[in-house]
Amino acid sequence: DTLLGTRSMDSEVALEVLSGIKIILPEKLLQIMATDFKSSTFDARPIPFLNDLNFYKKALSELFPNTEATRKAISDLNFGSLVLPKPHNDFTFFFGKTPLKWYPDYQSFLTTRLKLPLVSIGGESINSQVDGYLEFRMPTNEDDRLYVYLKSPSGLYYFFGYKQGVLSMVSNNTRFMDELLAMKESDLIVKMPDGETYEMQPVNPGTANAFVRRIQAANQN
């Protein structure tokens, strides 16, 4: 948000960040995703935590409270693994060191590499590099949007797009989509504490494909 209204909004800015994303998602859908990624970790490259120990230790100590569980998680990085304490890791998706670049034409921060360091899904450790893209759209009119595209080593993808209180999603995982399409309307509409309505809805695969093409085109420029 510090870029809004500044000259930086019209120029390219590069960052490397840890990112934790929270979206409201039914537990059954989260579990289907987590099971898919966890069952195919042997086919994925692990996140190279040891290559960036100083970055991870500093970032994690700033992001999470200074508890015994957090200190243990940071200490265990020395063994090349990261298991975040569940009481603190309430993120739907948590990503390790991720390069982002500000694209003025898109008014967005976009990931610049195909591989994403996926640390966890719903608090469940994954710790694998997976195919995917992130977009954090932050236009000057405050119409913020979030897009997440992840593909597991099994070839199954999951797309989420959030804007103005609506979470759109689609996947080529038939279990995921069957569960989503079978849900009642009451399961897909949530009344938020501020009185606003949060709605989840399925979209067609073309929406995910269009997002991927847009990110790929941006990274080729």
Results as ranks from 00 to 15, higher is better:
116 L>N: 06
160 F>D: 05
181 L>Y: 13
209 N>Y: 13
39 S>E: 14
208 A>Y: 04
36 D>Y: 00
179 E>L: 03
207 T>C: 05
63 L>D: 13
59 A>I: 07
52 D>Y: 05
122 G>H: 04
73 A>V: 05
132 G>Q: 02
70 T>D: 00
194 D>T: 08
79 F>I: 10
105 D>L: 10
204 N>C: 08
7 R>T: 08
162 Y>R: 07
41 T>C: 10
9 M>E: 15
13 V>E: 12
171 S>P: 01
203 V>D: 10
130 V>P: 00
3 L>R: 15
217 A>F: 08
75 S>W: 09
175 R>S: 13
84 L>C: 06
75 S>P: 01
90 D>H: 13
107 Q>W: 04
84 L>E: 06
112 T>Q: 04
158 Y>Q: 00
54 N>K: 12
145 R>G: 15
168 S>T: 12
56 Y>E: 00
19 S>M: 13
179 E>Q: 13
165 G>F: 08
125 S>I: 08
167 L>S: 08
57 K>D: 02
193 P>N: 00
73 A>P: 02
155 G>S: 06
150 L>W: 02
6 T>N: 06
10 D>M: 10
182 A>R: 11
91 F>V: 04
109 F>W: 09
118 L>D: 00
70 T>A: 01
109 F>D: 03
124 E>H: 08
91 F>G: 05
95 F>R: 06
56 Y>Q: 00
183 M>Y: 07
109 F>Q: 05
32 I>F: 03
129 Q>P: 01
206 G>C: 10
191 K>M: 13
107 Q>P: 03
39 S>C: 09
94 F>Q: 07
63 L>A: 15
167 L>P: 05
54 N>G: 12
8 S>C: 09
127 N>P: 00
67 T>E: 03
195 G>N: 09
6 T>V: 06
82 L>D: 01
151 K>S: 11
164 Q>C: 11
14 A>D: 12
130 V>G: 01
153 P>F: 08
50 L>N: 10
145 R>P: 02
166 V>K: 15
219 N>I: 03
13 V>N: 09
138 M>D: 04
127 N>H: 06
26 P>V: 07
164 Q>Y: 11
167 L>Q: 07
127 N>E: 12
8 S>G: 14
23 I>G: 04
156 L>Q: 14
36 D>N: 11
192 M>N: 08
155 G>P: 04
